[in-house]
Design a protein around this nucleic acid. Sequence first.
RNA 1: GGCCCCGUGGUCAAGCGGUCAAGACAUCGCCCUUUCACGGCGGUAACAGGAGUUCGAUUCUCCUCGGGGUCACCA
Length: 485
Amino acid sequence: MGTVRTRFAPSPTGFMHLGNLRSALYTYLYAKHNGGRFILRIEDTDQARYVPGAVDVIYNTLRGIGIRWDEGPDIGGEYGPYVQSERKDLYLPYAKQLVEAGKAYYCFCTKDELDERRAESEKKGEVWKYDKHCLNLPKEEVERRIAAGEPYVIRQNVPESGEASFDDIIYGHISVDCSELDDMILIKADGMPTYNFANVIDDHTMGITHVMRGNEYLASTPKYNLLYEAFGWEKPVYIHMTPIMRDAQHKLSKRDGDAYYEDYISKGYLSEAIVNYVALLGWNPGDEREFFTLPELEKAFSVEGMSKSPAIFDPAKLTWMNQQYIKNLSEEDFTRYAMPYYKQAGVDGMNTSILFKCLHERVDVFTAIPGIVGFLTSLPDYDISLFTNKKSKTDPGIAASVLDLAIPALENLPAWDETAVHDLLLGMAQERGMKNGTMLWPVRIALAGQEVTPGGAIEIAMLIGREESLRRLHAGREKLREAGY
RNA sequence: GGCCCCGUGGUCAAGCGGUCAAGACAUCGCCCUUUCACGGCGGUAACAGGAGUUCGAUUCUCCUCGGGGUCACCA
């Protein structure tokens, strides 16, 4: 076989959720791993469902995760056009070719008639299948009715018996009896091809060698193969992919708004982390590695590692992975990502190196930053019970004396830098034979006004500066005094 | 309902006839530590059920059960 060509063929009907994203990713990875080409095709044969701007969402999402396509609507290619509505004149001749060969036929049954017959058979508890009502219409009658402007569709003529089958790379041989298959519509009354037909024609005329798509098409693929056979075309290799589930019984879907790629980005997730996590949902490299860049995925990807069963999306693990990526960010990159949130919290004027030191190992999602650093800009109204900590051997009484010691010493400190404050505070603790915690806990509480903080007393003192630190320390001392300490 | 597919801990997932059934997330405990977090160590936790094939089944076959998909002039 020649060059591998795969395609991602979304319909512009909404947004890209993580399931779509992963399908695109795997399709891309398969092509790239095999030195092939990845094609982007827009399937918009259903005008009624067209959503303006949806194509841009597709472009932006793919670009956002670093996928580049070798051929597509915006960049063209030798198999264009890459938008189905622009190829609409292409399909009818192929359908007619099938009619000539007896593999398809014109059908004049109206939708109403069909609904009626369908309802009738369902009432009898039967499974409805098109009854081939129009299959044997005389040629002259067909021509006369077409000439008279009567609406028609073209249907595939599926054999009444025999086996239709195909081989799937992941699922193996799948076969179904032709009697189970319906004579599906190829060309709709509006002259447009159905998705099924357009898909086959496009995949063939675009030279797609590996058809990768969701496994909801598993059941209809035998029909596609019948079409390939009717045309005498070489069949593509099929690779059906599992869906990503929200829970055991529901796929991630457009209804789950938070499953959109863009939403995760705006929630403070890193594109690289999303790609990495999603790639591992339904595929494994065969070894213990779990961190992959896109290029590394291109190298490692193989269908052997693809799962046959659906995977449930686990937000907790995505968050964990995001944290791993954030942890490994350089100070510069971290600060760039964090800056909008610094601004939001009003800490953008503070020392970003110290912020980085305090935050980069604890932030799992960037949007969490304002909540974590809020105390830096405004001192929370806290209770003196916070001064009590067993392990640090401190309570309000001890805190009062520690602050009486620390405040004047800090006020007299010539330089306000990390080393100076550190040496001063710890030096005092050592002199008096107290635990570091006994010294630092009260200071930190007075400085922060909350029990849990990023960074310790010294970092906080640096961040908020000398003046504010002293003000807060005095306030803390005052608070204790009011309580009788 | 017919047909097709799937079924290892809460989740992802290795395993492809012989393993004390990996690893990761989550969870619990301990340690480190000026809090939290990070990190380190350890624990709890799974082959859906039943027949068969075999000296031996998580692995192969069949049935049951469970879940999903599909049966449109939607894609």
